[in-house]
Design a protein around this nucleic acid. Sequence first.
RNA 1: GGUCGGAUGGCCGAGAGGCGAGGCAAGGGACUGCAAAUCCCUCUACACGGGUUCAAAUCCCGUUCCGACCUCCA
Length: 467
Amino acid sequence: MSALNLYDTATREVGVFKPLIPGHVSIYVCGATVQSHPHIGHVRSAVNFDILRRWLTWSGYDVTFIRNVTDIDDKILHKAVHEKSPWWAVAMKYERIFTQAFASLNVLPPTYEPRATGHITQMVELMQKLIDNGAAYAPGNGDVYLEVRKLKRYLTLSGQKLDDLQPAADADAASSEKRDPRDFALWKAAKPGDPSWPTPWGAGRPGWHLECSAMAHAYLGEAFDIHGGGLDLVFPHHENEIAQSEAAGYKFANRWLHNAWVTQAGEKMSKSLGNTLQVETILQRVRGIELRWYLGSAHYRSMLEYSEAALDESAVAFRRIENFLTRSVELLGIQPEPTITDAFCAAMNDDLAVPAGLASISENLRLGNQAITDGDKKAIAKNANEIRGALQILGCDPFDTNYPQSASGNVSAALDGVIQLALKERAAARERKDFAASDAIRDGLLALGITIEDTAQGPRWSMEEKS
RNA sequence: GGUCGGAUGGCCGAGAGGCGAGGCAAGGGACUGCAAAUCCCUCUACACGGGUUCAAAUCCCGUUCCGACCUCCA
């Protein structure tokens, strides 16, 4: 088996992945700031990292996967005013919606999912360490800032130079206590009415995603293998996490992975552009497993240009695969045993080249369908096993009970009985060449969403499933 | 202004010096009472201009266009 190669944003190169502790992989992924409904860009990120996680697990690693929830920030407070609801109620409401969205796409729950507000103690400890080290300062107004000029390695992830940055909007030095306009707030002094927690420097709340540094350290220690997130987090979010963590003496992340966006008309999906597509909306069009197949099918570092046509096409393609697996179960009487082919393995090991893996699934599908025609049970099983193995890594295994399964036993048995009666009538009509009658039965069933296909093994029926 | 990505056939989408990934659509064929499903065959390509090389979609230089980030976006 080839070794896993992964891209690293810090070096901009694909290289062999070597975990810090053999056999174990620690991952921290920046999760949601729970201030609104998830759009499909959010869940793409989750799907991409879920595929990474499943692949690592399949490869034999023991994976610790931390994905945080940021449940306190300016936007949440803003939303709380807007929704006339306490900030914590807003955060919890959207957290639940995110969790629901992840679950409907079969994104595995993280090993642990820490919330920012549960880690104020760790943040205060981290700030104390930074102040003791001379990297941060508290000017006395309740804020705590990181002094970026003191950091030699600042901005190495994004490859920028401090002096080239456009000055921040709040850079009017007169009103600021900052020593440099580019210094960023680790902690923000409480404004009247805002939630706050006590610290040695005054009551306030977390500033610039201090929580990610604090929580990554709390659960993964001084150093960990992979830090992930969306491409737009590279700067400033991840730069600042690095700055905070390294200035505190931590080694922090060994490797950085960033997923690209879902775009529309070439533009990133974002609230400010008003072009977001909510997960709940898309799930009225396709099932969760189909949305996941669509989002996972592009390479994680490529932009995914959304269109309804592409989504529909992708869903149809998935149903073809699913249909083959269903037929293989009908013909063999057992569910496929997941197997990973060399081709799929090589693709995944090449920086998670899912599109190349999809080509190998296509090959399996072609051979599998051929095998059904030939009645070659051994070949049917082989290809079904290999397809199911690949689908399992992609989180799109139709037999996975995390996805809604078809109707309950006795209802579907009754339905099957009713349809078999109709099919018997149709067979009799065909026998006496009364095709008008036989087609009427088929059309009638089709109108109910039930498709009849005549196969070498006799007629089979299927019903379109809703998510 | 700085940093970083991208442009591939009708469409989607890989590849990163030689052998035209794959899918969808289209056309033809097989099968079928007809459908559906399935299989087989065929077709179309690397934004532009130079250069390096025996060989460039791939490397180099330049150009055009598109996008992202530059202090609370996945």
